[in-house]
Amino acid sequence: MAKQNKAYKFRLYPTDEQIKLIHQTFGCVRFVYNKMLAERKETYENLKHDKEALKKVKHPTPAKYKKEFAWLKEVDSLALANAQRNLDKAYQAFFKGHAKFPKFKCKRHKQSYTTNEVNGNIQLMDGHIKLPKLKMVKFKQHRDIPPEYKIKSCTISMTSSGKYYISILTEYEKEIKSKEIHHVIGLDFAMNGLFVESETGKKANYPRFYHQMLEKLAKEQRRLSRKKKDSSNWHKQRIQVAKIQEKVANQRKNFLHHKSKELASTFDAVVIEDLDMKGMSQALRFGKNVTDNGWGMFTSFLQYKLKEQGKQLVKIGKWFPSTKTCSSCGSVREIPLSERIYQCSCGLNLDRDYNAALNIKKEGIRLLVTA
């Protein structure tokens, strides 16, 4: 039996007093993170040419600052400990060459903090959740968490529009058996429809929620630009803009969850191209069309939904010529972006995206067989 993790996200409805403490914790976590980062940055600048000495340096902990700043004792100590853990991860990622040097946090960053379950300090009780320091907080539990799932940690966050959420990370034991692969589907990324699938050549028909709201969003943003920054009216208008952006994000996430669940339930393996969406957006000047699709989020959802069932997400190399290859005879030819029909000397006459999806499926099956 292997240990698995699953997170559940719910809307929180804290009281005014609890909101005050939540914001105090946000501020303290940010303060401690920045303090520790400032010291690490100074140490790094002094010792960056001596890696051995740098490894031996003992980094500061939140406990160091509690003596000087007594108000840090008023908030959840586990939240401060997690700030240190997050900085450690960011620092290690930098030294491994996976990321840039950690940056300081500001109020414009995502407002959140994480606390851990220790000796029953987090419990679910009839529409309320017991949390360290906050005690009983009302929340909307629209999904049941199985009683055998153990709560590991909770992340409390606030959206730009002022809504509060809690993400509950659970741990459970489950033996996931790999399923025999009988049904495979290939997906070719499509800018205006999310993807084209290899079974029928149909598109996912992604509604492009951002473009639907673009005119309304631009109107509200113009109103915001005319307000005096940080004034009462400016904050009210900022929340109106944030609400539109949140609605688009929620619509997108809901659509991608349904599509990924549908595919994960129907097929044993899903084959996609390992695309560099950021590079693609810059090179081809697709701009916001790429982020509107949410392809990265979609593949992330698809991966964990397939994994839970013992199924596979197969990624083929981004240099594989799926668009240039004939799905019938296998010949390869250059095809301009403006040419929407793939025509081959062998007689194939097919939509270019459908042709690419068929090639992606074939390559995925080949990789599965060789594996």
Results as ranks from 00 to 15, higher is better:
residue 13 Y to D: 06
residue 15 T to A: 08
residue 20 K to D: 05
residue 20 K to I: 03
residue 20 K to R: 10
residue 23 H to Y: 14
residue 28 C to S: 15
residue 28 C to I: 05
residue 29 V to L: 05
residue 32 V to N: 01
residue 32 V to Q: 01
residue 33 Y to D: 02
residue 34 N to E: 04
residue 38 A to N: 14
residue 39 E to Y: 09
residue 40 R to N: 01
residue 40 R to P: 01
residue 43 T to P: 02
residue 45 E to R: 13
residue 46 N to A: 06
residue 47 L to K: 12
residue 48 K to L: 00
residue 49 H to E: 05
residue 49 H to S: 04
residue 49 H to V: 01
residue 50 D to M: 02
residue 50 D to Q: 03
residue 51 K to T: 00
residue 51 K to R: 03
residue 52 E to K: 13
residue 59 H to A: 09
residue 60 P to T: 04
residue 61 T to N: 01
residue 61 T to H: 06
residue 62 P to I: 01
residue 62 P to D: 01
residue 64 K to S: 02
residue 66 K to L: 08
residue 68 E to F: 10
residue 68 E to H: 12
residue 71 W to P: 12
residue 73 K to L: 07
residue 74 E to D: 14
residue 74 E to N: 15
residue 74 E to M: 08
residue 75 V to R: 13
residue 76 D to I: 03
residue 77 S to R: 14
residue 77 S to P: 13
residue 77 S to T: 11
residue 80 L to M: 13
residue 81 A to I: 13
residue 82 N to A: 02
residue 83 A to Y: 14
residue 84 Q to I: 03
residue 87 L to R: 13
residue 88 D to H: 12
residue 88 D to E: 10
residue 89 K to E: 09
residue 90 A to S: 05
residue 90 A to T: 06
residue 102 P to E: 00
residue 103 K to Q: 13
residue 103 K to H: 14
residue 106 C to K: 11
residue 106 C to R: 07
residue 109 H to D: 09
residue 109 H to K: 07
residue 110 K to I: 07
residue 111 Q to C: 10
residue 111 Q to E: 09
residue 111 Q to N: 11
residue 112 S to E: 05
residue 113 Y to H: 14
residue 113 Y to T: 12
residue 114 T to V: 12
residue 114 T to E: 08
residue 115 T to V: 14
residue 116 N to A: 15
residue 117 E to P: 07
residue 118 V to S: 13
residue 120 G to I: 05
residue 120 G to D: 08
residue 120 G to E: 06
residue 122 I to M: 10
residue 123 Q to G: 00
residue 124 L to W: 00
residue 125 M to D: 02
residue 125 M to G: 00
